[in-house]
Simulated assay, not measured.
Amino acid sequence: MEKDATYAKDGTVDYHGNPSNKKETGTWKACPYILGTECCERLAYYGMSSNLVLYFKHRLNQHNASAANNVSNWGGTCYITPLIGAFLADAYLGRYWTIACFSSIYLIGMTLLTLSASVSGLKPTCYAKDKCQATDTQSTVCFIALYQIALGAGGIQPCVSSYGADQFDDADDSEKKSKSSFFNWFYFSINIGALLSFSLLVWIQDNVGFGWGFGISAVAMAIAVLSFFSGTRLYRNQKPGGSPLTRICQVVVASFRKYKVIVPADKSLLYETANAESNIKGSRKLDHTNDLRLVSQLPT
């Protein structure tokens, strides 16, 4: 009983790979680092992206239609890449390493974008205010940085909120109640980052320069990375469970091969693992149900 009260029951482990000690890891001890990461990442993202159309138009000398189209394509990519990040996190890397790797890619992209807007030779040549000309190389560097940011965002966006939820054990009633409070603070952090971006950083880009605006966003992303790594010793980590596509294919094949099998009314007669946990790391056993039955039972 004492051991059950000491360790989390949801299968999470600490950064050493040992069962999570509830007194030393997770809950509100770990969440401030995750909330700080999200707030700074959103500040960096919105601060960089809110004025991209104007940057393409006035600095890269693109027409309105081309600038809007390029921003739309980039924004669409930012919404597609989370599919990659979510798959890698659940199947192979786990949420911690997915956030760690992709946030580093994100920071490199933000740094490169800042250099492309401020360093001589990389930034477009301006002859007057809002009248600039960019070479093909300068435009290429800018777009490489932007799509590197899109890739980095794809590893952070689908994982941060779930990683925060991992810090609370659903088997513990007090921690389960605290999880809802975490999500309130999580969305509050997003809104704080967005508020600072749309007010302060947009003003800086319009009145001081894009180099300064992108630079502050890059610094905010650096703080996000630092905040995330600072909480490493306190995090609870779910083990990745392997590719879900493989398991889906196994279910489909088994369904076709055994569609004539009569399902016994007593579930204890079914062939399955005897213990309460799933054999798939990071997953739980599913309760039996008839709701998804597709083929009627055939008489022998």
Rank of each mutant, 00 (worst) to 15 (best):
Y7W: 00
A8E: 05
K9P: 05
K9L: 11
T12M: 03
T12K: 07
V13G: 04
D14N: 13
Y15H: 14
G17T: 04
S20R: 10
G26F: 03
T37Q: 12
E38I: 06
E38Y: 09
E41V: 12
A44F: 03
Y45D: 04
S50E: 11
K57Y: 07
K57C: 04
H58C: 10
L60I: 00
L60C: 01
N70M: 01
S72M: 12
G76A: 13
T77S: 15
I80E: 06
D90N: 07
Y92T: 15
L93R: 08
G94Y: 02
G94M: 04
R95C: 00
C101Q: 09
I108M: 15
M110N: 14
L113F: 01
L113M: 05
L115T: 08
L122Y: 02
L122K: 08
C126V: 02
Y127C: 11
K129G: 11
D130R: 14
K131H: 06
S139F: 07
V141A: 15
L146G: 14
L146Y: 00
Q148W: 00
A150W: 02
A153G: 08
A153K: 05
G154T: 03
G154H: 01
G155W: 00
Q157D: 05
S161Q: 13
G164H: 02
A165H: 04
D169W: 01
D173Q: 14
S180H: 03
F186P: 07
F186R: 08
G193K: 08
L200T: 09
F210K: 05
W212P: 14
A218V: 09
A222V: 02
S227N: 15
R233N: 15
L234A: 13
K239N: 11
G241I: 01
S243A: 07
S243Q: 10
L245H: 06
L245S: 11
R247L: 11
C249S: 11
V252W: 00
F256V: 12
R257F: 00
K258M: 06
K260S: 09
K267R: 07
K267W: 02
S268F: 00
L269N: 14
T273V: 01
T273Q: 02
A274D: 09
A274G: 08
E277L: 13
S278N: 06
H288Q: 12
H288S: 11
N290A: 06
D291M: 14
L292S: 14
P299T: 13
